[in-house]
Computed example of a mutant assay.
Amino acid sequence: MTHPYFHAESSARKFGGIPDDYLAIHRWFDETKESFCDYRHRALRHHAEGIFEAERLFGTTIINSEGKPVPVRYIGEQHVMEDCGGRVPNLADWLSKIVPEVWMSRGTFLGNLSKTEVQS
Score class of each variant (00 low, 15 high):
3 H>S: 06
4 P>R: 08
4 P>V: 01
4 P>E: 11
5 Y>N: 09
5 Y>S: 12
6 F>D: 12
7 H>A: 12
8 A>H: 01
8 A>G: 02
9 E>H: 06
10 S>P: 00
15 F>Q: 10
17 G>E: 10
18 I>T: 15
20 D>W: 00
21 D>C: 01
21 D>G: 06
23 L>W: 01
25 I>T: 02
27 R>M: 09
28 W>I: 03
28 W>C: 02
28 W>Q: 14
28 W>G: 01
30 D>I: 00
30 D>T: 06
31 E>L: 12
32 T>D: 09
35 S>E: 14
35 S>P: 00
36 F>R: 14
37 C>W: 01
37 C>K: 11
37 C>M: 02
38 D>M: 07
38 D>P: 04
38 D>K: 05
39 Y>A: 15
40 R>I: 07
41 H>E: 03
42 R>E: 05
46 H>A: 09
48 A>F: 01
48 A>S: 07
48 A>R: 05
50 G>T: 02
50 G>A: 02
52 F>Y: 00
52 F>S: 09
53 E>Q: 14
53 E>G: 04
55 E>T: 10
57 L>T: 15
57 L>E: 12
57 L>V: 15
60 T>V: 04
61 T>W: 02
62 I>W: 03
63 I>L: 10
64 N>Q: 13
65 S>L: 08
65 S>Y: 05
67 G>M: 05
67 G>C: 06
69 P>W: 00
70 V>P: 01
73 R>F: 01
73 R>I: 06
75 I>D: 06
76 G>H: 02
76 G>P: 02
77 E>G: 08
78 Q>A: 11
78 Q>N: 13
79 H>K: 05
79 H>T: 09
80 V>T: 07
80 V>S: 04
80 V>R: 04
80 V>Q: 05
80 V>G: 04
81 M>N: 07
81 M>P: 03
81 M>C: 09
82 E>W: 04
83 D>P: 02
86 G>V: 04
87 R>T: 12
88 V>F: 01
89 P>A: 01
90 N>S: 06
91 L>H: 10
94 W>R: 08
97 K>S: 12
98 I>S: 08
98 I>L: 15
100 P>I: 07
100 P>E: 03
100 P>A: 07
101 E>Q: 15
102 V>R: 06
103 W>T: 12
103 W>Q: 14
103 W>D: 13
104 M>A: 07
104 M>W: 03
104 M>H: 13
105 S>M: 12
105 S>K: 11
106 R>T: 14
109 F>E: 15
112 N>D: 15
114 S>K: 11
116 T>H: 02
116 T>A: 13
116 T>N: 03
117 E>D: 12
118 V>I: 14
118 V>E: 10
119 Q>F: 07
119 Q>D: 13
